[in-house]
Amino acid sequence: MDTTYHGYEHFWLNPTFWVAISFILFVLLVGRTAWARITSMLDARGARIQADLADASRLRAEAEALRQQAEADRAAALAEAEDMIARARVEAGRVAEAAALEAEQSAKRRERMALDRIAAAEAGAIAEVRNAAAEIAIAATREVLTETMDAKKDAALIDSAVADLPRALRAA
């Protein structure tokens, strides 16, 4: 049996063996260093991703809080708007009632003023008719007296009125 390896008596004397060992050692050393760098980069990237996830979670929580606040603000604004509408309706009703009352009072005042004017015009017309009737009666009396009275009848009427005067004063 031949115990030579490619011309070498022992395998550890073969340069290919030592190149292979050197290569394996080189790969182990470089791999270890590269592995350390790769793992540190992966750890750093994992930490960055974790931080980004934490930020995203925080931002999501903030957005949710803002959404809830916006909904609460919207509900408050809606309630305030409904309250304002209710107050406006009440105020409109009050103003309408006041306007109706004012219109009614104004109509009553105008009616009273019209009735007062009518009454004044009626009173003036009655006074004019009375004055005209009195003037006509005086004129008619004057005419009747001038036609029917003479000096004798006039003297007799005066004497009769003077004689009747004490009795009329006692009665009054």
Score class of each variant (00 low, 15 high):
Arg48Asp: 07
Ala168Gly: 00
Ala36Cys: 01
Glu104Gln: 13
Met149Gly: 05
Asp83Trp: 06
Ala127Glu: 12
Leu42Lys: 08
Met113Ile: 11
Ser106Cys: 07
Arg130Gly: 00
Ala34Thr: 08
Ala96Ile: 09
Ala139Asn: 12
Thr148Arg: 13
Ile49Trp: 13
Ala133Lys: 06
Ser160Pro: 00
Gly93Trp: 08
Ile138Asn: 09
Arg74Ile: 07
Ser106Glu: 15
Glu104Ile: 13
Ala34Cys: 06
Arg94Phe: 06
Ala34Gln: 07
Ile38Ser: 03
Glu82Thr: 06
Glu71Asn: 11
Ala161Arg: 10
Ala125Asp: 01
Ile38Glu: 02
Glu80Thr: 03
Ala56Gln: 04
Ala65Ser: 05
Ala98His: 09
Leu78Ala: 14
Arg167Phe: 02
Ala76Ile: 05
Ala61Tyr: 01
Lys108Glu: 11
Ala140Cys: 01
Ala54Met: 03
Lys153Gly: 07
Glu62Phe: 00
Leu78Glu: 15
Ile118Glu: 12
Ala34Leu: 14
Ala72Gln: 11
Leu53Asn: 08
Ile49Leu: 15
Met84Leu: 14
Gly93Phe: 06
Gln50Ala: 15
Ala133Asp: 01
Leu115Ala: 06
Arg167Pro: 00
Gln105Lys: 15
Ala96Gln: 14
Glu102His: 12
Ala88Arg: 06
Ala36Gln: 05
Ala79His: 08
Arg60Thr: 08
Ala88Trp: 08
Asp164Lys: 04
Glu62Gln: 07
Glu80Ser: 07
Thr33Arg: 09
Glu97Arg: 11
Ala155His: 07
Ala81Asp: 06
Glu62Lys: 03
Gly93Thr: 09
Thr146Ser: 12
Ala156Arg: 14
Asp154Ser: 14
Ala125His: 02
Arg60Gln: 13
Leu145Ala: 09
Gln68Val: 07
Ala121Ile: 01
Ala34Tyr: 13
Val162Glu: 11
Arg67Gly: 06
Arg58Met: 01
Ala76Cys: 01
Ser160Glu: 15
Arg170Glu: 10
Lys108Phe: 14
Arg48Leu: 11
Ala99Asp: 14
Ala86Val: 05
Asp52Ala: 15
Lys108Asn: 08
Arg60Lys: 12
Ala72Gly: 03
Ile126Tyr: 01
Glu143Lys: 04
Arg167Tyr: 02
Ala76Asn: 04
Ala139Phe: 04
Val95Arg: 15
Asp52Pro: 00
Ala134Gly: 03
Ala54Asp: 12
Ala155Leu: 10
Arg170Phe: 01
Glu135His: 08
Val90Ser: 09
Met41Asn: 01
Glu82Ala: 13
Ala156Thr: 10
Thr141Gly: 08
Ala100Gln: 14
Arg109Met: 09
Ala132Arg: 14
Ala76Met: 03
Ala65Gly: 02
Arg87Thr: 04
Ile38His: 05
Leu157Ala: 05
Ala47Asn: 11
Leu101Arg: 15
Ser57Tyr: 00
Met84His: 12
Arg74Phe: 10
Arg74Asp: 05
Glu71Ile: 13
Ala88Glu: 10
Ser57Val: 02
Val129Pro: 00
Met149Phe: 13
Asp159Pro: 00
Ala81Trp: 13
Gly46Pro: 00
Ser57Thr: 03
Ala76Gly: 02
Asp154Thr: 15
Leu53Glu: 09
Arg48Cys: 00
Ala79Asn: 06
Ser160Leu: 15
Glu91Thr: 03
Met149Gln: 12
Ala63Lys: 10
